[in-house]
Design a protein around this nucleic acid. Structure first.
Lengths: 233, 233
DNA sequence: TTATTTTTTTGTAAATTTTACCTCAATTTA
DNA sequence: TAAATTGAGGTAAAATTTACAAAAAAATAA
């Protein structure tokens, strides 16, 4: 029998549940990941995903929301479960299972000050440093899932500002799929899906000619989804 | 502060982690689900998925393997994570998150005696009784996932005996997708994927004429997968 | 002001994939 | 041996995907 005292301080003597967030963002420079430099031992100074233990009275999803709010300042972030990591030995410090969530944010919406204060920063998806524990694996799995999801559902739009151009959308998909797409075919396909609303305005910031801005038409998307469309690009 | 005594007996005062298995099987009568009639309170006598708490020193996957072995007698069952249910109030008895796993078994391989002794039984997917807690939801989600998976990977084969006929395979896919498929197109498609090995033998049990038996060619499948095939049917 | 440069926008033909649809073959049983 | 049942196989039309190049719009340089 273990004493009450031991129980209280032995962090491998009880189950912990955590949630870790794989936060994707997108801007001119491509697809990025929000990482956090650990300030406490063990692994002080190493890069890590952002995460937290789930409180006893807290929904797992709410824990993810809390973490995302705390670090990015954003509420209503799009996120979805990626995978649950449950190896007994995955964390030497705690007997802890972790529910990984992948989150998509509009990189320009978030609170840069807050991120900085937390010792977090954005890393291009192609140059992610080594991470603590099984977080490398989490990133690989989540990126895979992002690719999967983007193929079936228009979640790419969560990463773009409300108004965006078709070339921007294409760059995003190229970053997600990690390959070049034909611009004629891309445009044709994406317009054929009828979930884009063309605006009068043009965006002149990223080209000389300027490109028409579009909005994503959520309502129309929902209608189409009911009648069984697929968003394969 | 709560006393040690309360801590020990208050099952909502600590985190529990469970795994629940959504076990699919397939036979002449269609797609089925393995359910279990609870023998203990609360909800004694109600139908439930099979599951267990995850032990402190146990991988989550191993817990699922343990449960599956215990009830079906089978080792090496195919299973995959479905979703993790983490609402604080999902189980009134425990503060418990549950990692749902969907499992596919060859219904004729399992130990019928064992299943019976455990008070478990097979239920056609179209007439699943009401289940305890959020298990209805788990079944819906897992069935959705099964449909998804079957579309991209040849996991349907996990549900069939080693040797099977094309009409059997078609019946399976019809049960999974819950719609009729055209037999000419189905045959054409499935053969074009080049993952079936035609045998000399015929199965005469399910038709007068008898149908050729096939084996699933795992190696070939892996090769094809590397070169980027998709298994959409 | 004109030429150059850069980026957006648009169409079409060929190839591939999906869909719709029916007849004959093999065997059992009446 | 006739009837009934289920398996096996092909083709044409439709839809989708792929490959591919030239013109339009605007800023900048000459």
């Amino acid at each position: 029998m273990k004493s009450g005292y031991t129980d209280q301080y032995n962090t491998r003597n009880k189950m912990y549940v955590a949630t870790d967030c794989i936060v994707f963002g997108f801007d001119e420079d491509g697809l990025k990941l929000l990482l956090f430099k650990r300030k406490v031992k063990p692994d002080e100074g190493k890069w890590s995903l952002i995460g937290s233990f789930v409180e006893l009275e807290e929904d797992v999803d709410d824990a993810a929301r809390r973490v995302l709010k705390e670090i990015t300042g954003l509420e209503d972030v799009f996120f979805e479960q990626s995978y649950t990591y449950g190896k007994a030995e995955r964390d030497p410090g705690y007997r802890c299972i972790s529910i990984a969530q992948f989150a998509l944010i509009r990189i320009n919406d978030h609170d840069r000050e807050l991120v900085k204060n937390y010792g977090a920063s954005w890393h291009n998806i192609e140059s992610v440093p080594q991470l603590v524990l099984d977080h490398d694996r989490m990133v690989r799995d989540a990126f895979q899932k992002l690719r999967d999801r983007a193929r079936r559902r228009p979640i790419g739009f969560e990463l773009l500002p409300e108004k965006f151009t078709i070339p921007q959308l294409q760059q995003l998909y190229e970053a997600i799929y990690q390959r070049k797409l034909d611009s004629r075919n891309f445009r044709k396909k994406v317009i054929s899906l009828k979930v884009l609303e063309k605006l009068e305005e043009k965006d002149k910031t990223s080209s000389k000619r300027g490109a028409y801005l579009y909005k994503f038409d959520h309502d129309n998307y929902l209608k189409l989804q009911e009648s069984g469309i697929n968003f394969e690009i």
